[in-house]
């Protein structure tokens, strides 16, 4: 017990100790901010991988670590699409995952927003044109927010999620 307390005291608070990410290449649309309005104080995310290289997953996981601690902004990761307000989709949508993606979209309760995370989800990245790829994501389900990068840094994902929390009327993006 003493050892645990000592360690915690030595470590202190690490939340927020990260460099700022690059500015997003695509600004948030007013439509997206409007659509995200019901979730401003609490956004529950279901992450769906449709064929990424798993770097995007690692950065999504990093959002939950003590440094980024996304929960302090009311963002939670849900285990089921039935509990989610937002789908975060990564990867170029493979032939084998196409059905699963559509099923997940259908299972997510309305209203909902879809966030395409990473270059693959936005325009298939390096996998564009492959016989095994049918994406990008917006070919199969409507996409509201795009976060580019290969992969985007956690700070950049966080910045976009914060952008979604702004008041639609006063926002200037």
């Amino acid at each position: 017990m003493f050892r645990i307390l000592k360690k915690s005291l030595q470590t202190g608070v690490v939340t927020g100790q990260h460099p700022a990410g690059a500015a997003p290449s695509e600004p948030l649309s007013q439509d997206a901010i409007e659509k995200a309005k019901p979730f401003r104080r609490s956004l529950t995310i279901r992450e769906v991988d449709t064929g990424s290289c798993n770097a995007c997953e690692m950065e999504m996981n990093a959002l939950a670590n003590p440094v980024y601690d996304v929960e302090r902004f009311g963002v939670h990761i849900a285990a089921s699409p039935r509990h989610a307000d937002a789908l975060v989709v990564t990867g170029p949508v493979t032939v084998n995952m196409e059905r699963a993606l559509k099923a997940v979209y259908k299972a997510t309760a309305d209203p909902k927003i879809v966030i395409a995370l990473g270059d693959c989800a936005i325009h298939c990245g390096m996998f564009k044109g492959s016989y095994a790829v049918t994406g990008p994501v917006d070919r199969h389900i409507p996409v509201d927010v795009r976060i580019s990068g290969c992969p985007p840094r956690p700070a950049e994902i966080l910045a976009v999620l914060e952008g979604l929390r702004q008041e639609p009327a006063t926002s200037k993006t």
């Binding site: 449709t50 064929g51 170029p92 493979t94 084998n96 995952m97 390096m126 492959s130």
Partner: peptide, 11 residues
């Protein structure tokens, strides 16, 4: 498995 098959070797 193989849900994520992206055709890497062909690419």
């Amino acid at each position: 498995h193989f849900w994520k098959h992206r055709g890497v070797e062909k690419l």
